[in-house]
Design a protein around this nucleic acid. Sequence first.
DNA 1: ACCAAACTTTAGCCACTGCTAAATTTCTGT
DNA 2: ACAGAAATTTAGCAGTGGCTAAAGTTTGGT
Lengths: 140, 140
Amino acid sequence: MAESQPIKRRHRKTRADHASEVAEDYVEAIADIAQTKGVCRAVDLATRFGVTGVTVNRTIARLVRDGLATTEPYAPIRLTTTGQRLATRSRQRHEIVLQFLVALGVSRSTAEIDAEGIEHHVSPETLKCFKSFTDSAGKP
Amino acid sequence: MAESQPIKRRHRKTRADHASEVAEDYVEAIADIAQTKGVCRAVDLATRFGVTGVTVNRTIARLVRDGLATTEPYAPIRLTTTGQRLATRSRQRHEIVLQFLVALGVSRSTAEIDAEGIEHHVSPETLKCFKSFTDSAGKP
DNA sequence: ACCAAACTTTAGCCACTGCTAAATTTCTGT
DNA sequence: ACAGAAATTTAGCAGTGGCTAAAGTTTGGT
């Protein structure tokens, strides 16, 4: 039921695509924080993303609605199995993009910023090319 | 008040950044269409982006508000000088990203799709690296 | 034990970007 | 010229993602 629309693809359906980007950023962050500090609280995400706790709260509600996370009142946020899978995939992709940019000669600090933006727009094919380049750049 | 934000940058302020991405896409498209067919009408943009004319209308209103375009009722859309400069810069950046992906080995069709998504997230430093790679890949 | 600080939640605001329906204007073909 | 088609505009709905203010809950320090 995805698309019955005869839409000119290549231009993203901004709203939907953007929403899943946010979801990926959040699950990635939740997994990361949970790994480092044991649990992930709303305030941790608020700090990381530079938004208010209120915004985090509502975003988490969407993750819960979409089956990516679970919450109980005043309790830490936990990922569902689906959410964890998405987090893992996102982190892997993020890492590939980051290493690629570094291998290309971009400074680490810039690479970290750009990888955040780029990772959500890289197709599997392009990702494979990134990986190949990084690998071959390592051992010439 | 401005500088009191201890905000973790690297994560984009989604709303604002997304809005300017859309602005770039639109001015780029307007310039492109105007060049090919003489004028650019709302319906042309609607077709290109796969959205309704209503959506285009409101987006154009924002471009006008932001000084990037001008309109008169029922007349074609025209870019301001500022809008044209932005269009030119956007198109150049788009072209650099596209050529880079192709040089990297990505198929043209995928490269065209991915370039659309990536171009808004590439810093000047990374863009320079892209350019260098494409140039050196040309003549080995 | 208690009060204060920190955190979470609720309520309600705004902007952006989709949409449909309906009214208006312009264009086109006969 | 004029009717119908095409394009534009207006009005109003929905969902995402920012915010502040204020209320509720947990947690920590004395």
